[in-house]
Simulated assay, not measured.
Amino acid sequence: MSTNRPAAIVALARGLTSEEAAREAGVSGRTVRRWMEEQDFALEVRDARTQLLQHAVGQLAAGAVEAVTTLREALRDADGRNRVQAARVLLDATLALRESLDLEERLAALEAAQQEAH
Rank of each mutant, 00 (worst) to 15 (best):
A42T: 07
A42F: 00
A42R: 15
L43K: 13
L43Y: 06
L43N: 11
E44Q: 15
V45L: 02
V45T: 02
R46C: 00
R46S: 09
D47Y: 02
D47C: 01
A48E: 15
A48W: 01
T50I: 09
T50Y: 07
T50K: 13
Q51K: 13
L52Q: 11
Q54S: 07
A56I: 03
A56D: 13
A56C: 02
A56H: 11
V57T: 09
V57E: 13
V57D: 09
V57G: 00
G58Y: 10
G58I: 04
G58N: 12
L60V: 11
L60S: 08
A61Q: 14
A62Q: 14
A62F: 08
G63M: 10
G63H: 09
V65Q: 12
V65A: 09
E66D: 13
A67G: 05
V68P: 00
V68L: 11
T69P: 00
T69A: 12
T70Y: 06
T70G: 04
T70A: 14
L71M: 14
R72E: 14
R72F: 04
R72L: 13
R72I: 05
E73T: 09
E73K: 13
A74P: 00
L75A: 05
L75E: 11
R76W: 02
R76V: 01
R76G: 01
D77R: 01
A78M: 03
D79M: 00
D79Q: 08
D79N: 15
G80M: 07
G80N: 04
G80Y: 05
R81I: 05
N82C: 02
N82A: 05
N82H: 11
N82E: 06
N82G: 01
R83A: 04
R83C: 07
R83E: 01
V84N: 01
Q85R: 15
A86K: 08
A86M: 09
A87M: 11
A87K: 04
R88Y: 09
R88G: 00
V89Q: 14
L90F: 03
L90Y: 03
L90M: 07
